[in-house]
């Protein structure tokens, strides 16, 4: 299955997921919001976990990011 996490605008803010029959999830254009969702789905996934941690250990960007509707979209501020 392939779905656009955020339907493309031309300016971007798009992440794409491909969920494989064996349960693997492939992601293109991984944004923090999608990474956080994936960590919630699979807390044992170290690859994603470290990426979320990297963002959280930085500045307070996560606090200021907007959630347009229920679509995980993260354009530039």
């Amino acid at each position: 299955m392939k779905c656009n996490a955020a339907k493309a605008s031309r300016i971007g803010g798009e992440a794409e997921l491909l969920i494989l029959p064996d349960g693997r999830v492939l992601v293109h254009n991984l944004t923090l919001m999608v990474a956080e969702a994936l960590v919630d789905l699979n807390p044992d996934d170290e690859f994603i976990h470290r990426r979320v941690a990297a963002k959280r250990s930085g500045h307070s960007a996560a606090k200021t990011e907007q959630h347009p509707g229920n679509l995980p979209r993260r354009p530039l501020p």
């Binding site: 300016i11 803010g13 254009n29 944004t31 923090l32 990426r51 963002k55 993260r74």
Partner: peptide
């Protein structure tokens, strides 16, 4: 596309 991403190598992200 113009967005903050966390997909790349650890030393480059966000």
């Amino acid at each position: 596309s113009a967005q903050v991403e966390v997909a790349e190598d650890m030393e480059l992200i966000p």
